[in-house]
Amino acid sequence: MEQGTVKWFNAEKGFGFIERENGDDVFVHFSAIQGDGFKSLDEGQAVTFDVEEGQRGPQAANVQKA
């Protein structure tokens, strides 16, 4: 798993971006967030995640709040 920081996340649209430790950004969809209840992330929040190849390039999977 990688570690990163939430760059931004739009809860209304259900997606955002995580900044990886290497400085690259990776797309995150709310469906990739682990846990119960409303799935959202806060700007600046530390997270761990896997990276999978999506239809439009790399995207975060198995996102967990650190």
Rank of each mutant, 00 (worst) to 15 (best):
22 N>F: 12
61 A>C: 08
34 Q>S: 11
6 V>F: 03
62 N>T: 05
44 G>A: 05
23 G>S: 08
19 E>A: 15
45 Q>T: 10
16 G>P: 00
62 N>Y: 06
22 N>K: 12
34 Q>N: 10
65 K>Q: 09
63 V>A: 03
66 A>W: 12
40 S>R: 11
51 V>Y: 06
20 R>A: 06
38 F>G: 06
50 D>G: 09
10 N>G: 03
33 I>Q: 02
29 H>P: 03
34 Q>G: 08
19 E>H: 15
39 K>T: 06
21 E>K: 15
62 N>G: 05
32 A>S: 10
65 K>C: 08
59 Q>V: 10
66 A>S: 13
46 A>S: 12
48 T>P: 01
59 Q>F: 14
9 F>L: 03
51 V>I: 14
36 D>E: 12
26 V>S: 02
26 V>Y: 04
46 A>D: 09
37 G>E: 07
53 E>G: 07
55 Q>P: 15
5 T>H: 15
63 V>Y: 00
2 E>P: 05
4 G>N: 01
46 A>W: 11
25 D>P: 08
44 G>L: 05
31 S>V: 04
8 W>I: 04
54 G>D: 06
6 V>Y: 01
53 E>F: 13
42 D>V: 14
6 V>Q: 00
61 A>N: 09
42 D>A: 13
15 F>I: 08
7 K>D: 01
37 G>F: 07
11 A>F: 10
60 A>N: 00
20 R>P: 04
49 F>M: 04
64 Q>A: 10
44 G>H: 08
26 V>E: 01
16 G>K: 00
46 A>I: 12
35 G>Q: 10
23 G>M: 11
2 E>W: 15
53 E>I: 15
43 E>A: 15
44 G>N: 07
5 T>R: 15
19 E>Q: 15
25 D>H: 11
53 E>S: 11
13 K>Y: 09
64 Q>E: 07
37 G>W: 06
58 P>T: 09
47 V>K: 00
22 N>M: 11
48 T>F: 13
11 A>H: 14
56 R>I: 07
62 N>K: 08
13 K>P: 02
57 G>C: 04
16 G>F: 01
28 V>I: 07
20 R>C: 06
65 K>H: 09
16 G>C: 02
66 A>C: 10
60 A>D: 01
26 V>C: 05
54 G>V: 06
40 S>G: 08
35 G>N: 07
7 K>Y: 04
49 F>G: 00
65 K>M: 10
59 Q>Y: 15
9 F>K: 03
15 F>C: 05
36 D>M: 11
11 A>N: 10
19 E>K: 15
31 S>L: 07
62 N>D: 04
13 K>V: 08
38 F>N: 07
64 Q>H: 12
64 Q>F: 10
48 T>D: 05
56 R>W: 15
27 F>I: 03
32 A>V: 06
5 T>C: 10
64 Q>W: 12
44 G>Y: 05
56 R>N: 11
31 S>C: 06
57 G>N: 05
40 S>K: 10
29 H>V: 04
19 E>D: 08
19 E>S: 15
25 D>W: 13
22 N>E: 11
62 N>Q: 05
6 V>D: 00
34 Q>L: 13
29 H>K: 03
2 E>T: 11
40 S>Y: 14
40 S>Q: 09
59 Q>R: 11
45 Q>M: 12
13 K>F: 09
4 G>T: 00
19 E>Y: 15
45 Q>V: 09
9 F>P: 00
3 Q>E: 10
2 E>K: 10
44 G>E: 04
18 I>H: 00
41 L>P: 02
43 E>H: 15
46 A>N: 09
57 G>F: 05
26 V>F: 04
54 G>R: 09
11 A>R: 15
20 R>L: 06
34 Q>E: 09
4 G>F: 01
30 F>S: 05
59 Q>T: 08
32 A>Q: 08
47 V>W: 01
8 W>G: 02
3 Q>A: 12
25 D>E: 10
62 N>A: 05
22 N>T: 12
8 W>M: 04
55 Q>T: 13
36 D>T: 14
29 H>D: 03
6 V>E: 01
7 K>F: 03
59 Q>I: 09
62 N>S: 06
41 L>C: 03
38 F>A: 07
1 M>T: 14
35 G>V: 10
25 D>C: 09
24 D>L: 13
50 D>Q: 13
11 A>L: 10
15 F>D: 01
59 Q>W: 10
64 Q>L: 11
16 G>W: 01
53 E>C: 10
40 S>H: 12
4 G>Y: 01
8 W>S: 04
4 G>A: 03
31 S>I: 05
24 D>Y: 11
58 P>I: 10
57 G>A: 05
33 I>N: 02
3 Q>V: 13
52 E>S: 09
50 D>I: 14
41 L>F: 05
